[in-house]
Design a protein around this nucleic acid. Structure first.
Length: 298
RNA sequence: GCGUAGGUGGUAGAGUGGUCAAUUACAAGAGACUGUAAAUCUCUCGCCUUCGGGCUACACAGGUUCGAAUCCUGUCCUACGCA
């Protein structure tokens, strides 16, 4: 067993940047196993719309954390982190290289930077009660519970406000976040010119529509996933669900999706941009990427 | 080619004498992110600025008025109606 923290690779980038393919290529070369860091691909049945890699595309490379839970259940970062850490350990024990691959910044950081979240699971009953309250009321509640958090939090963000109240109610206050990395991570970011990425997004959307994405959502609903839930899953699941409910036309659905997916890609970039350790490279620079990885394992 | 309704910022679309660089939505740009994270939220958005303001703007050209995106005249264009 080598000294120091275990070395792992992480592949990040906006949606439609070609992360999955790169992960498979690297896995082949460096005896890797892929761990998906995607908040939607953990759900069974979310395949086309989430861009989940297919069996064929895996090329015999083992993939983890795909299809681990029903979309009727809510899966959170904490669940994800626990499972991912477990998988990483197992892969290392096997003498293989863990390769994180996905676009959910929060999930990636939770693992790569080992963000230790307060041990307060979601309290659905409490959330239900708080959800109906006004922003003002929630703000007042938090102010009484935890002054410090009240000052630092985004007071217009109901989701954040409710979670803070939830934590403060059980712990007395919202603890400062701790982060002490468990792994030595090489993060490779896939770089695209914005205009090209936009085109890739739109082409991919067309492809998804042709390969049965609408039917996929139809099936999910028929299988008991509520419209509300589908809408909350975002992007293709949200807008296809709206279309199937006849709340928008097909044309509107496509138009909205083109914009929304692009916006999402930008939000992802905002997140990744903060991490100065990411090595940004174009997917065409395969030799450069391999060299980087080789150097990392030296 | 006579009638009517119109021409407003990247788009849609408010405003119908002053409080209008112009509601709002979308697009565009930037950002936040402590168990929903593809979610949720924030800021900027005519041009210039020492951030006090300054300048050019609501089809175009004139006019009325202390003052016009808003009223009048003409020109050009658009939609619907009658031809």
């Amino acid at each position: 067993m080598p000294k120091g923290k275990p070395k792992i690779i992480s592949i990040v980038g906006p949606t439609a940047s070609g992360k999955s393919d790169l992960a498979v290529m690297l896995a082949k070369q460096f005896k890797g196993e892929v761990i998906s860091t995607d908040s939607r691909q953990v759900y069974t049945g979310l395949n086309i719309g989430s861009g989940k890699i297919t069996k064929k595309e895996m090329k015999d490379v083992t993939h983890h954390l795909l299809d681990v839970v029903s979309p009727k259940k809510v899966f959170t970062v904490a669940n994800f982190k626990k499972q991912a850490d477990q998988k990483i350990m197992e892969i290392i024990e096997r003498g293989h290289t863990p390769i994180l691959c996905g676009g959910t910044g929060f999930y990636i950081d939770a693992v790569a930077k080992n963000i230790i979240l307060p041990d307060v699971p979601p309290n659905l009953a409490l959330r239900k009660k708080l959800e109906v309250l006004s922003l003002k009321k929630l703000q007042k509640m938090l102010m009484k519970l935890d002054q410090k958090r009240f000052i630092s939090i985004d007071l217009n963000n109901k989701v954040r406000l409710i979670r803070s109240i939830e934590i403060a109610k059980t712990l007395g206050s919202v603890p400062k976040i701790k982060s002490k990395p468990l792994y030595n991570v090489l993060t490779i970011g896939i770089l695209w010119d914005p205009e090209v990425l936009k085109k890739r997004i739109n082409l991919r959307l067309q492809k998804r529509l042709k390969t049965g994405m609408i039917n996929e959502v139809k099936k999910l609903h028929a299988g008991g996933v509520s419209w509300k839930r589908l809408e909350s899953l975002g992007l293709e699941y949200r807008f296809v669900a709206l279309f199937l409910q006849k709340k928008i036309t097909k044309t509107e659905m496509i138009e909205r999706l083109q914009f929304e997916i692009w916006h999402y890609a930008k939000r992802q970039m905002t997140w990744f941009q903060k991490d100065k350790s990411i090595k940004w490279m174009r997917s065409t620079e395969k030799i450069k990427i391999k060299k980087e990885v080789k150097g990392f394992f030296k």
